[in-house]
Design a protein around this nucleic acid. Structure first.
Lengths: 130, 130
DNA sequence: CTTCGTGCAAATTATTTGCAAAGTC
DNA sequence: GACTTTGCAAATAATTTGCACGAAG
């Protein structure tokens, strides 16, 4: 039940992608909430959100984020919107970091590792908390 | 019960630090297993491992790692042993990445964000799986 | 004696799975 | 009709918490 690649099951996956276009680094249940509000004609369950997310991650369309708060968040894995995060460990403020340290390193491991996605996060205290 | 800074409660914390010296990117229950085997004189519970870990993270002695497998792993947050990871999304092989893209960026955010730790992981296919 | 740390058992929370019903070709 | 996707309810697994006891100053 874990791997059902499927060829044209795209409905719920598209709905989830659409949600992720609108809601930045959303959790599964935030995605569900968003779908309930905006896609009133469509029935959705948390289960199918999770299933769609797993599929989207497996196909590198979406990447999981971990802000060390016990929930997995998700983000589109598109080149165009590429960015990283700074997470305040006190107030949980999340700031987008447009710098990406990645390109140098991509070159260096290219021969031994085929990269699907990468994560980079800074944890610390934001301007207000420090 | 979440914040007990404590001045000399160091016993279980030291035990956990010792475990993390020996066991690389261990989960809470792997730490417990290690403590049960090596510290036979000491009683330990999973609860106090979690409590010690939370405290060590809060004081920046240890940093949490997320390899997107549903478990939090922990690592010493020492400058000397600093490194990152490449995680194979197929076979879960974890390779250490000695390159760190961080120093440039640290400079650039220094004024607005006080960094406690950072994570950087590559996810993709290792040499055998690709 | 008072304060802090502990283990145990129970609670909480995120995520996955079995199964039967519904949708699609 | 065969096959796939879905939702629901139940199961699983990681982590946290309440509480009563034990250790330390």
């Amino acid at each position: 039940m874990e791997n059902a690649p499927s060829l044209r099951n795209v409905k719920s996956q598209n709905a989830v992608l659409e949600a992720l276009h609108q809601v930045n680094h959303a959790t599964a249940s935030e995605i569900l909430d968003w779908l309930k509000v905006t896609q009133k004609n469509m029935k959705v369950s948390l289960t199918s959100v999770y299933r769609a997310l797993n599929h989207l991650v497996a196909t590198s369309q979406v990447k999981p984020l971990n802000f060390n708060d016990g929930q997995v968040r998700y983000e589109l894995n598109t080149h165009a919107m590429h960015h990283h995060h700074m997470i305040c460990t006190k107030c949980n403020l999340i700031q987008v970091l447009d710098l990406c340290p990645f390109d140098d390193i991509a070159d260096k491991v290219k021969d031994t590792f085929s990269i699907q996605y990468h994560n980079f996060e800074l944890f610390g205290l934001c301007g207000n908390c420090k």
